[in-house]
Design a protein around this nucleic acid. Structure first.
Lengths: 346, 346
DNA sequence: AATTTTTATCTAAACGTTTAGATTATGGCT
DNA sequence: AGCCATAATCTAAACGTTTAGATAAAAATT
């Protein structure tokens, strides 16, 4: 059992513990001969430093707390991976707390009191462990102002933001606009959109992108082409069915996530519409399965890894008092596959 | 900034720091009146305990190190979720290290020296942080004997094992056998299997299950029905194409994972076989998308959450010197959907 | 009222480091 | 050979707790 401390090796190398510390950290000069002796002792006794003790003295832990609302939701792992990517390069460790919100209070976060309790616990756990900063990973972007008190410890949000803290976001409005622009470039002008839950900020933002595209490209605007889904497959199916049953159905359907797009595909098949020949469909998220469906679905990739990377990078800068050189925000990217084509010319 | 320590509150409450510690931990009796005083001080000064200091004195951290070979691989998040589930109930914190193996050395772990380096770094990081134990989450089950030295710190493996350490596994052989039994119960006797990479232990185990089923149910054995894939969609497609082009094609195809099953579905469609009418197909893993495909694919659920839960529970018992009451290992579960039916009677 | 027992509180050391500041050793100059 | 500057090393305090053991206070027993 590794009970050997700096003290033991000091004894063995016949120097003071301070000297050992100096060779360990290179904080002061030490004579080559002495250095050799203590290094030999370290080697021989298989000394392993104790970061807990270090952290107590220095006033930081090199550890950052990550709060994930639910780690099993598709966006979390890649964001965390981005965090690790930066963390590895800067010797930052990750203390993870998983709120498990999906299991505990479900997807719509109305139960603010329960939420507050879980969040407060998470933060105080992290604070007790003296993390140098906190990263928050939500499942849907929303305003978290006033919900989390970190007692002054720096925090940066992804998928979520606050009036007072920094947050890393991609531009939902722009992404949606770009999806529309792509569809329009393919020749579509009658384009339907199926949104997520309307209390969700991304839903509203993406709808704005839709409106902007319709306006800028001067498409004929038809409010009947706008449908409100709930992010789930079934709603995509139901809403697409309605859309395709219209006297003059849209030639393209933009779904605000890939799982509703699955429903859209199924509705199209059920009503004898071929995709993309009879109707184009486009998703959002670039979920792994979007490549497995038939047809492979064209979608919008989310810069998840980059968000995590930028989140911790920003946090790191805040912690170290560096002037955060403003990077451009993470960008979505259109993934062109097989579910979009030019509309039939009638 | 929360610089108030036990010392400050001792001062304010006019007691010694020991007394404060006693009320904090209930380790000794303290007069109600005194307790009230210190509690008031704690409240008033908003005192937050410092776990780092605690950990230095007590010889444990209440922190478990989790090493994930790659957190973006599908099995990791649910396992971690299981770990958190137990961790929450026992006040155990999670220090996560993500080896990011997929990005660094790819899926086949031949490069043992690079692997060793990453693993050793991870362990020593965790050891420095004085974790009470370690959980290892691999991406594929394999023998890790001799690769990781935890210097005596307890470790439990999932998706991976060692001659010397405890590991939590589901029974691959059995799961595969059960899949076969199900297919046979539906009337199939000419059943093909598409394996994963053959240097993978699950591949071999599942093949054993296949053999056992063939033997026990006395199916006619045809070696041509056994195909070696590589876990990727494309191999499922190619191999299923071969299978379906046989003079007497199988009536059912068991794929060792859901992603190859996608390829199987596509090959069937390409060759005009309807699923499940002309050929049944079954997957493995119960990936989210298996429910989104057409037809929805019947598959084998992996007890990921339970594995994580049992892993940390076992570790907890080892750490606390409790006799590990032997639980039965996590069980796979067949998820019946639409891709399997009785074979055509010719 | 004096003594003993019990209960509450305090003192001080310890956990493993880092780091000012003090002390000592080394080597160059005269 | 003696002095000085410089370089190397040491001493001791500090970080925020816990916890034996000592002491003081209160309660119970005579």
């Amino acid at each position: 059992m590794s009970k050997i401390s700096i003290k033991d090796i000091a004894l063995k190398a016949n120097v003071s513990i301070a000297t050992v510390s100096y060779v360990l950290n290179g904080t002061r000069n030490v004579r080559p001969e002495t250095r050799r002796r203590v290094e030999a002792a370290i080697e021989e006794m298989n000394y392993k430093p104790n970061d807990i003790a270090k952290s107590l003295k220095r006033q930081h832990t090199n550890t950052i707390g990550v709060i994930a609302e639910d780690i099993t939701v598709f966006n979390a792992p890649d964001i965390i991976d981005g965090i690790n990517d930066f963390g590895d390069r800067h010797d930052l460790h990750i203390l993870l707390v998983n709120l498990r919100l999906d299991k505990r209070i479900g997807r719509n976060f109305n139960d603010v009191t329960a939420y507050r309790k879980y969040a407060a616990n998470a933060v105080s756990e992290l604070l007790s462990k003296q993390v140098d900063g906190i990263i928050y990973i939500g499942v849907h972007t929303r305003d978290l102002t006033g919900l989390i008190d970190t007692e002054g410890k720096p925090i940066v949000y992804t998928y979520g933001y606050t009036k007072d803290d920094v947050s890393i976001q991609y531009n939902d409005e722009q992404a949606s606009y770009e999806a529309m622009a792509y569809l329009i470039s393919q020749g579509h002008s009658r384009i339907a959109i199926i949104s997520g839950l309307m209390d969700s900020i991304p839903s509203r933002l993406r709808l704005n992108g839709y409106y902007r595209a319709v306006t800028e490209f001067q498409l004929p605007f038809d409010p009947l082409l706008i449908k409100m889904g709930d992010w789930e497959r079934e709603s995509g199916f139901r809403l697409a069915a309605e859309l395709l049953a219209m006297p003059e159905p849209p030639t393209a359907i933009l779904s605000m996530n890939d799982v509703m797009a699955v429903g859209v595909l199924q509705a199209a098949a059920a009503q004898g519409f071929k995709v993309p020949e009879d109707v184009s469909v486009m998703g959002f998220d670039n979920r792994e399965f979007s490549d497995y469906l038939t047809p492979r679905i064209t979608t919008m990739n989310l810069p998840l890894h980059e968000m995590g990377y930028q989140a911790i990078e920003t946090l790191y800068q805040i912690i170290n008092g560096k002037t955060s050189d403003t990077r451009l925000p993470p960008q979505c990217q259109l993934i062109e596959r097989d579910s979009v084509a030019a509309p039939r010319t009638k």
